[in-house]
Amino acid sequence: MAQKPVDILAVGLQKQYGDIRALQGIDLSVTHGERFGLIGPDGAGKTTLIRVLCGLIRQDKGTFQVAGLDGMRSIRTIKSILGYMPQKFSLYPDLTVGENLRFFADLFHVIGAQRQSREERLLHFSRLGPFWKRRAGALSGGMKQKLALSCALIHTPAILILDEPTTGVDPVSRREFWEILRELSDRDGTTILVSTPYMDEATRCHRVGFMNEGRLLATDTPDNLIHGYPYRVIQVHGENLFPFRKALETIPGVRSVCALGEYLRVSTEKTDAVVHAIGDRLTHAGATGFRIRTVAPLLEDMFVNLLESGRVS
């Protein structure tokens, strides 16, 4: 099988703001046509990494390449083939949908018939056509997001970098948005690097990088990451289980107990013995009407595990 070319390559990227080490040596490679998700909390360094790759800020150490071009020497060429959508809505709220699109078309020198056909295509997928004359500031959150994406796509970039594009957007728009991203990479072969605070969005990526405190903790496909989770998850369902949480924490083999509404999620090293022990303890403590079953771990379990083991060491 032929090796797919690497579109984004970062080697040992470091960036420091005063005392804050925003990037502490990031190595990353995203191959052509891949959807790569950067997952991590605020302050993990996702935005800094993205801003370095887009040439908006300069790294202190390390190098990077975009489409095989050196990030330091060819940044202007890189910018012309890159599509970027920042975290904050960054279009002109006082300009209409059409005026915003046209402005970005001009910036990337997309003109004439080419512009027309691309505008049509973008309006088609974003369904913003009826709002052509509406001011961008008056669009709903989901529509703003789609307009921002349309502006980032006006020059049909080969590589698309998005910084938390769906934060605060309603789930319907969020799903639509990811559908568009999926089409872009699967059908058009666009390489996508996207950051998100939502764990569930990570599963929509080919590969995921967990980021925290300026480091990439793990990089793999979501399935592999979940399979790499070293513990089993037992879920107890019932009403008002929270008070019994402490009773379960002391069972030998239990790593952690986490209350989740009507559930208690228990991470353990062994299963069968623990399932029995949980039943015993709960009954002993006076709980009734609960159900115990083993469930598949979530990506979030893996991330929590990585964070905790990182904190211990």
């Binding site: 070319p5 690497v6 579109d7 052509h32 390449q65 489409a67 910018k79 083939i81 003109i111």
Partner: peptide
């Protein structure tokens, strides 16, 4: 071939494009 993208011409490098950007702004 290191990259999957072939850059035969670099959009935005011509003088015409620069003028276009200026007028757009």
């Amino acid at each position: 071939m290191a990259a999957g993208i072939e850059i035969d011409h670099i959009p935005g490098s011509s003088r015409k494009a620069a003028f276009r950007r200026l007028t757009a702004i």
